[in-house]
């Protein structure tokens, strides 16, 4: 049941201020996005139309704590098909960023390890200017599992076979253990400082 006194009617404006969220009020609830969504096909409760409706109604807390936010593939299928040009794929990204900010401020808990992964990725990029798989895994797994030891165990489990396979094909030699770095790293740092959310 919706508790009307708990609704936050300004939530949609909060979303519209976030890049990617601008078009949320164009949605007329036709469900085209949801019918074509590959995640809905696998997880029947997943419903991007409903996330939009809940956001428009102002169900801020329910939306921001919904685990569904974190299983979108950003595949752009919904965006390509929406008759109202709502840009759902980007819109969900905008909502995810609001949720991340709230979580960082300690105001809510996110039931997914995806923010940890995205952050770990961004840290590698900020540090080296390129993706560094090893560094990414070394940051992500311990955070996800709650300790260094259990993180390393989980990493081994995911990567043992794959790593060996890649190694045998010459795709993961000793070179892959070290990061490839952009020369002009101060600029990359500046980009994150000026444009990134801290």
């Amino acid at each position: 049941m919706i508790k009307t006194w708990e609704l936050d009617p300004s939530f949609k404006y909060e979303i519209m201020k976030e890049p990617g969220g601008e078009h949320i009020t164009s949605c007329y609830q036709c469900s085209t996005c949801t019918i074509g969504c590959p995640i809905t096909e696998l997880v029947p409760d997943y419903n991007p139309r409903k996330i939009i409706q809940m956001s428009l109604l102002g169900m801020r807390n329910e939306v921001l704590t919904s685990p569904d936010l974190w299983i979108c593939l950003i595949c752009q299928t919904c965006t390509a098909r929406c008759p109202q040009d709502v840009r759902i794929s980007d819109l969900l990204g905008a909502i995810r960023r609001i949720a991340e900010k709230e979580a960082e401020a300690g105001k809510l808990k996110i039931d997914s390890s995806r923010p940890l992964f995205d952050k770990a990725f961004q840290h590698q990029l900020e540090k080296h200017g390129r993706l560094y798989d090893m560094g990414l895994a070394m940051e992500y797994y311990p955070k996800k599992e709650g300790s260094f030891i259990s993180g390393m165990k989980a990493m081994m489990k995911d990567y043992k076979d794959f790593g060996m396979r890649m190694f045998k094909k010459g795709k993961m030699g000793p070179k892959a253990m070290l990061p490839v770095k952009v020369k002009d790293r101060t600029v990359i740092k500046k980009i994150f400082e000026e444009m990134g959310e801290k």
């Binding site: 890049p19 990617g20 950003i74 980007d90 990204g93 995810r96 960023r97 992964f117 995205d118 990725f121 961004q122 990029l125 200017g129 390129r130 993706l131 952009v182 020369k183 002009d184 600029v187 990359i188 980009i191 994150f192 000026e194 444009m195 990134g196 959310e197």
Partner: peptide
């Protein structure tokens, strides 16, 4: 010369993507 990562799927903030790729 000295290209940087495009942001892949993990950098979701468009402003950050635009700045990274402006370089």
């Amino acid at each position: 010369d000295d290209w940087n990562c495009c942001g892949a799927a993990e950098v979701e903030d468009p402003r950050l993507v635009y700045a990274l790729n402006a370089r």
